[in-house]
Design a protein around this nucleic acid. Structure first.
Lengths: 218, 218
DNA sequence: TACATGATTTAGATGAGTCTAAAAATAAAT
DNA sequence: ATTTATTTTTAGACTCATCTAAATCATGTA
């Protein structure tokens, strides 16, 4: 009945990759994400499949079952709640928390999670802006999202940033990505995850490095 | 360089058993404590020995090396700090925290531990009265200890209890173990860990179940 | 001192998670 | 529609942590 840390990490990775892919996740994509070999992934997918956590047909990629989705979302909930705790109560910097939360997310105690959530005042977003699902696995109404996660074709507007260096802000100003600026996401290039926007009728190319630091509406 | 959870738990168990034994820990004692088989213990001791975490000669029991001691004490530090957090900030009851802390103690991040310690105001005792070692592995000056952990021969006095039921307090009153009462620990019986005290010149036999709920000076 | 008893260790297996190397299936290109 | 390239899976092996069963050591007692 228990899932190992490794299994949980695979489920989380499948969840995150399928967000973007919108469909099945390939063995190779998973291998890269998990920093392991494709053959190891195949082995694990068989195991997860036998535990009914994923739907897996060989050569056809993998998707989460309802059961697997529940586990993945719960891990994400725990990860993000711990990040809030680390930043708001222990004085960690935004960028120091990920690795620690990566460990804490596997602590298994429903009571702990609910009490932590209450202690933190039921936060809706983590320090990076990631939405925190509630105890039932429901995400907050998707009002904001990172530009690098916005679906292609969406019309949207700039809500904020997660990088506050002068050079970054100056760059945004220069290309016209000011707060409140409306735009449409025309295309995303898989090889470097850069995006093409249409902004005041003008095309604009934005690198992934920039896109991932911009919150936009959804 | 990394120790698995299992290795950490063995080190902790060796540490705790050697507190009482005052010397080497036997394979069987360890097997019982770890709820596993003696053969598994032997395997693990070989591994820990090859990592220089324990001194182990076959058939001769095991002791921690300085390196192993450091690891064990650090685990205990983390365990107890998390217990303080759970009780004082998340509203856990004294008796609900152990299993959760058992998991949290393995989260590995020196920065986290130091910030947690600071957040909690450098507590010296956990909710059960267990002393919390500092970052250098030093325990607070041993002013209090559970009666079941007091060395044989010690003169001491009652400082408090961790069990507050009426029946327990009534029992203490009846046998004369009031707050501040002085006594000497005459003997400890290994088979049931009960102890014999000398109190106002009168002998008193106290069961382990009672002794483990009484704080005494040291 | 030799024997019986209990504690401990070895030998051999198993399951989880991983790897490399090789085979098989799919997708792309001519 | 073949061939080529890419992706994915199998086969076999390794480590960690565990087990059972059998062998070995240590010790107390006769």
């Amino acid at each position: 009945m228990e899932n190992s840390f490794t299994e949980e990490n695979y489920l989380k990775a499948i969840y995150k990759l399928s967000r973007r892919t919108n469909g099945g996740v390939s063995t190779n994509a998973l291998a890269e994400r998990m920093d392991t070999k494709a053959s190891s992934v195949t082995d694990m997918l068989k195991r997860l499949s036998s535990k009914k956590l994923v739907d897996y047909q060989k050569y056809q990629g993998v998707t989460l079952t309802d059961k697997g989705l529940k586990v993945a979302v719960d891990i994400i909930r725990k990860h993000r709640l711990w990040e809030v705790f680390l930043v708001e109560h222990l004085g960690f910097g935004e960028h120091e928390v990920h690795d620690v939360a990566e460990q804490m997310e596997h602590v298994s105690s429903p009571l702990l999670v609910e009490r932590l959530d209450k202690f933190l005042n039921h936060p809706k977003y983590d320090p990076h802006g990631g939405p925190i699902p509630d105890a039932d696995g429901k995400f907050p109404a998707p009002t904001r999202v990172k530009l690098d996660e916005l679906p292609v074709g969406k019309q949207s507007k700039v809500l904020g940033v997660t990088e506050h260096s002068d050079s970054f802000l100056a760059y945004l100003k220069k290309v016209g990505l000011d707060l409140g600026q409306q735009f449409t996401l025309i295309d995303r290039h898989d090889f470097d995850r850069s995006v093409d926007l249409l902004l005041n009728g003008e095309p604009l190319h934005v690198s992934h490095e920039v896109a991932r630091h911009i919150f936009v509406s959804n």
